[in-house]
Amino acid sequence: MTLLPKALLLVAALGLAACNNPDRYGAGGTGADGMNGAGSGIDTMGLGDPNDPQSIAYFNQSVGDRVLFAVDQSTLSPEGRGILAGQAQWLQTNSDYAIIIEGHADEQGTREYNLALGARRAAAVQDFLISQGVAPSRMRTISYGKERPIEVCSEEACYSRNRRAVTVLSMGAGA
């Protein structure tokens, strides 16, 4: 019985240490343990008006925050390069944003391999953005492997949208 409270304390401590946490899927407010106060890991940020061309909403919708990949590939398609060229241009104009590039895989693969594959995809995007003049110091990559699909069916229609790299913005590139 003493094990669980210790685990919660430990995790609470880790949560505090991880405030600026890009693990936004898992972050905070899980509820089961009632940790909802400070340090619960919820980062709040206004997304702005999608009609404001400097907003994250504009970037996500109008510039396009993601590129898709073929099965088991990390090579950028011509369409993907077009989207990323647009991202690079926008990111240079809006230089206050920090950038995390998430690499994802579909569920057709083993867990470890998909983590490595997601990392390859994120790195392909990062390399392209660097080649287009985005400062490497603003960017980090993270792989979610097959852990965070956005589409849940087990068909190619879903898989094709899950094989993606997503450029996620937050304030604070100057740090």
């Binding site: 685990a7 995790v11 890009p22 898992g26 940790m35 983590l115 980090r140």
Partner: peptide, 28 residues
């Protein structure tokens, strides 16, 4: 652990007293 971070693929030590695993605790 609780489920505030993704955890993956735990492995026991040869004597069962320790566990290795992958976690997104730090965000990465």
């Amino acid at each position: 652990t609780d489920s505030s971070s993704i955890v993956l693929a735990p492995r026991f030590s040869p004597t069962g007293d320790r566990i290795l695993f992958t976690s997104y605790t730090s965000g990465f």
